[in-house]
Design a protein around this nucleic acid. Structure first.
Lengths: 228, 228
DNA sequence: CGTTCTGTTGAATACCTTCAATTCGCGTGG
DNA sequence: CCACGCGAATTGAAGGTATTCAACAGAACG
């Protein structure tokens, strides 16, 4: 299990922990595999621990009574999920499903809480993770309530092409899933993509989007400009 | 300052802490007063600590570029606020403003973090607080994205009249503020109230709302029924 | 008792969704 | 290697919910 301990020591949540703690964590860890589309846990289900994604991609989402879905998070390898239920309430507050073949490490609640109370460093890391999530949700609420869909999409695009002014953005999820993440439906997103293309702001080839006019996109993201 | 220590020991965040810790907390605490409408901190402002509300009522909110507001939270006495910035990033993720004459206890970041690393109990309490907030936001996102305004309002009403089947709900904030909390505007809320009254579901006298037909409201809250 | 903020009501509009019909893309199997 | 089939994506037309703008009524406060 050297490989597992190795991975664990590189997870942000566990960064900076002494080797001894990493070993303890490895001992209580259980690895689960999931196929594309498989449910990991469901909203309201009793929670007995938390997960850290090892491989693949997982979506955390809510479902309406009519079956419409709102994605809260796309989890990437190294990120924890299902952590809320460990510290408050005893049930998961949303659904989790593998978007592709995935592996996740499961940490049973009791043992994990034990480690946290013994290691202030781990506690601080966990507090940082939860705070980061809260900040993210704050922005999500802001987007859903105060911005229109083109604004949200423009922000999404720009945040994905932030680093080293690369113009190419490769969507890591299907367009329909992106729509759900942006709080809309595939049709609406498709129309917005179409408009942006016809205005010369971007080009789209499957999941590959090229930003042609960054300034205009920033104008839309900030609400200063609108799509025609 | 016996009174302050007394209050602090009754705050959920500090529940179960030994007297010694409470004393330390009292020593690093600073009390601030705010008048109605006064800003406590603003979005993006550098954060040097967290607050616990002592008296009054505080709204945590986001503003759009056009000035529309979305309330994230109404803080009641005993609740902490501004805590996210202590553990992640260094700036407040939203605005805070006193809705009425208020007093808040301020805990400087460094000293507070020091106490947390010394007391696992305090750390666990803080984790529980953050998790609770996350759960709350999960529901807020769900409401904004997957439910219509009448549904949100019906849920709000019912959660306010939950205990001991009391039919009277007294709004603790102005209707305009409630609209902002529900992710809409005063006009829309007013129309919904009007419809519910004319359908005989409720009566409204200022801030006093009486539930006449709980079943119908539950139908609306769950999305099974609609308003005419 | 007047001024100001809060709440209400109406008409027009905007944005997004719904529904339905195609088209595209891709993996599977012949 | 090509054809088939199925889910994903696109496009059009119609409809619905909420917002905007504007005017007015009412409550709160000094």
């Amino acid at each position: 299990m050297a490989k597992l301990a190795d991975f664990i020591s590189n997870v942000t949540l566990f960064k900076g922990l002494p080797k001894e703690q990493i070993d303890k964590l490895s001992k209580i860890a259980v690895v689960h595999g999931y196929r594309r589309g498989e449910e990991i846990f469901s909203d309201g289900e009793r929670a007995n621990g938390l997960y850290v994604l090892f491989l693949g991609r997982v979506k955390i989402f809510k479902l309406s009574s009519e079956g419409k879905e709102q994605i809260l998070h796309i989890i990437e390898p190294g990120e924890p999920f299902g952590e809320v239920a460990v510290f408050s309430g005893k049930t998961f507050p949303a659904h989790a499903e593998a978007l592709e073949e995935s592996k996740a490490i499961f940490f049973p609640r009791g043992a994990f809480v034990g480690l946290i109370t013994q290691d202030p460093y781990l506690a601080m890391n966990m507090l940082a993770v939860l705070s980061g999530r809260l900040k993210y949700f704050t922005r999500l609420v802001e987007d859903l309530s105060l911005k229109e869909v083109p604004q949200r999409f423009a922000s999404y695009l720009l945040s994905g092409s932030d680093l080293k002014d690369k113009r190419q953005v490769h969507l890591n999820i299907a367009k329909g899933q992106l729509a759900s993440l942006l709080g809309t439906i595939p049709e609406t997103l498709s129309r917005i993509l179409g408009k942006m293309v016809s205005e010369g702001l971007i080009t789209v080839q499957g999941r590959k989007i090229t930003v042609l006019n960054r300034d205009a996109l920033e104008g839309i993201a900030s609400g200063r400009k609108a799509l025609i």
